[in-house]
Amino acid sequence: MANPDVILNALISGVLLGGMLALTALGLSIILGVMRLVNLAHGEFLVAGAYAGLFLLQWTGLDPLAGLALIGLVLASIAYPIHRLLLAPLADKGPEASMMTTFGLSIILQNLFVLLFSADTRAIERGYATVPLEIGPLSVPQIYVIGFAISVTLITAVHLLITRSRFGSDLRASADQPQAAAIIGINVRRVHALTFCLGAACAGIGGTLIGVALSFTPTSGAAYLLTDFAVIVLGGLGNVFGTLVGGLVLGVLQSVGGLALGDGYRDLVALVLFLAVLSLRPQGVLGSRT
């Protein structure tokens, strides 16, 4: 079929894109793991990050990569009031109420994007998005490599935050036993708020990277939500490096699927894999503990 160079390139692109996917999936994963919340607005957070990168560039001329920290902050500052006003009051009303609220949020955000920014397909246009990096037969856009490096760095940082810091032990304690955590003095609501902000920031920063690497529309979120679920299911919930592995595997499979069947099948590959793994092994392939 295709020549070996094309296949090799597809594999490498898959790995690199998979790293970026893993960063966004991490946002979904920690919110699910710590708050037991299926954040159905996750995809919109990701798209919001992409728009933030776009407008940052258009309005201020600031390169989105230089503004990543700012974008993370923007997303966190959107997420904080959402948690405070919408989710925290539902804390004791069962998981479905919160999930449905994020669903409501998702359709609000999606349609706000259309109303405010039009339904056009956008891309954050930078030189490094189109100029390829060539090493021998390999040729991948520079942004793939940059995005991958940034993503893996951030994932490692989040891992260290969770395993080494005091906030991390508060976070793990709150995830294990919220009531006992509160009783020993942890402000669980604050931990949840910060977790939600952290998750949104991961999604947003990942969204910016993806927005540079690929294009996006107001309704791209749903597909990324599902892809990220596939990553979590592959990698195991609450396992930071599992998420990274899940992202890489999925990225490669998507590339291979796209190459073999046509580009339209990329997302389908993820979904079919997701459904298959979910119904065969609901707890994920790599297990579920950190």
Partner: peptide, 13 residues
């Protein structure tokens, strides 16, 4: 659709 979302969130709460 956006208003539907708002109504949803309000009713759930």
């Amino acid at each position: 659709v956006a208003i539907t979302g708002v109504v949803l969130i309000l009713l759930i709460r």
